[in-house]
Design a protein around this nucleic acid. Sequence first.
DNA 1: ATCCAGCCGTGAATCGTTTCAAACTGTAAT
DNA 2: ATTACAGTTTGAAACGATTCACGGCTGGAT
Lengths: 334, 334
Amino acid sequence: MSVSVKDVAAAAAVSVGTVSNVLNRPDKVAPATVARVQAAIDRLGFVRNDAARQLRAGRSRSIGLVVLDSANPFFAEVARGAEERAAREGMAVLLGNSDQTPSRERAYLELFREQRVNGVLLTPTDLEASAVRRLADSGIPLVIVDGELPGGGVPSVAVDDVQGGMLAVAHLLEQGRRRIAFIGGPQSIRQVADRLEGARRALAGVPEATLEVIELDALTVLHGRDAGEEIARRDAADRPDAVFCANDLLAVGVLQGTAILGEVRVPEDLALIGYDDIDFAQSAVVPLSSVRQPARAIGAAAVELLLEALESEGAAIRHVRFQPELVVRASTGP
Amino acid sequence: MSVSVKDVAAAAAVSVGTVSNVLNRPDKVAPATVARVQAAIDRLGFVRNDAARQLRAGRSRSIGLVVLDSANPFFAEVARGAEERAAREGMAVLLGNSDQTPSRERAYLELFREQRVNGVLLTPTDLEASAVRRLADSGIPLVIVDGELPGGGVPSVAVDDVQGGMLAVAHLLEQGRRRIAFIGGPQSIRQVADRLEGARRALAGVPEATLEVIELDALTVLHGRDAGEEIARRDAADRPDAVFCANDLLAVGVLQGTAILGEVRVPEDLALIGYDDIDFAQSAVVPLSSVRQPARAIGAAAVELLLEALESEGAAIRHVRFQPELVVRASTGP
DNA sequence: ATCCAGCCGTGAATCGTTTCAAACTGTAAT
DNA sequence: ATTACAGTTTGAAACGATTCACGGCTGGAT
């Protein structure tokens, strides 16, 4: 059916061993022979069978990536960063979505193990789960993405969400705001909990400031819009003068929710800041202040850590921690 | 190192052939034996080596997907749809981004061939390229995504962009608009060209209506914003009364560009319609009318066609063509 | 009793590559 | 002439699963 090394060997009048050497260690083969074999390869259209290579050599050329939802702009960028970095090593990325469901996560991890991926990048659905730890111990290199396994032992790349929350609220306080509201999704999501914790810490130094926590079920534009409308309907006296949203989608929603009633102006009556700095933030009607996370760099770094782990078996476990960055735009402007 | 069928066979006191049968045709094995082997598998933590399976059996369990840019919301959704459908078959998706660069496209296709993927889903950078045709002839099943290879012969899933363009402009005309502008990226992108063609056709029946074409270099929010500002700066007499954008990102940009000067109101002075109906469209400040493309369904259908092609070698080549759907919101509202 | 038909299970051959010890070649040193 | 040696090339073993022709066994029909 398809052309194999054997065919190439015959065509070039050498042994299969030599063809393999041309493929993998051309410097060990006489230049004239390399040329002859190369010519045969081109002529026959030979394509190396990675399955056989993998079987014999042990190594594979793909890595698995499991995220919560690749359609979310943040994770889409993370995936993009991972893909780019992997491509530079000639590796491919297998993409899986867990949708926050442990069973789907498990299914993907199993599939990836069968495929003998070089390693797995995982945004775990549940960091406490011993399943993750077991996976890490099972021999397949693992890197935690956008999180950190309590107790260490597994390389990870994360952004300091507590710090990010502090940045956001400190900025609001600096603008003279004192009645702060935090709008966020289920607190079971670590990212949300950490950002709230950061907000609390920023407030610690300003006794006269207050924090209202508005908890939602999900981090979507529509949820944000509802929250925004609710705020806009309040008496001016009950209204916060600043809102920190757990992500940009929520913030965009709040922007719309308040705009609908038309009474609350951003930023005059209500300062608004989001999180992630997704592409759209800078292009919102009122350009949105936000806390930037280097999504692409996160993906690239995760691959980097994986490569390190592969390179030097049993070396020191590294944790990459990015610092979030405050991006000030009109929505909190003076 | 790792547990193989041989180990399982020994542990369960059967032959390797039987273990393989348990794995692949459990109905051909006595129930008691199945149970015994299954127990051994669980106890030893055996994970099937897909490379070996693939080598011997020929089939693989992954499919390749090459899109222009997976960070673009439309393609992110397409990828998501493909991933979901593939997962149901126990297959994994290898994700590649060509960034509209033929050389990157080629590199991925080569990598995927080496990996012996089951097939490739491709959004080609250049539909004319004979490279695509050669690929299709090279034995590896191919499905064109969001496009159609002129001359047929390759299964494809597409959306009728001409029809979509017609829908959009017909709607604008129906609203009484007569001075239409089309804003779009490089015409070399087939999707853009087709949508413009659709606009032209819709106008054919209304002699007194005019069409202005504003060509941009890319389909981004920022490009759209520039175009919007330019329009807003014009004298009212030179201004179009409706704009059809080649995608939603552009439309969002136009919305902002016109808002900045504050003189042109949407939809009163300017009706605005986009394309793709990305998630954000319904949540824009002025909710955006758009032409919906079923992105997820497109991805799923592509996998479907690939499965068909694998199933019935040499059967009829199918083309799935989705109909675009007009979504009317406030930006073109009465 | 004998035969036959189903079931089950066996084990060697096979897929296409990599790897490695051994063979070969030609040149330099003794 | 012999030995040493480095540079090349060879060929067979190995990786771990699937496949398939074949043999053993069981139980019912003749």
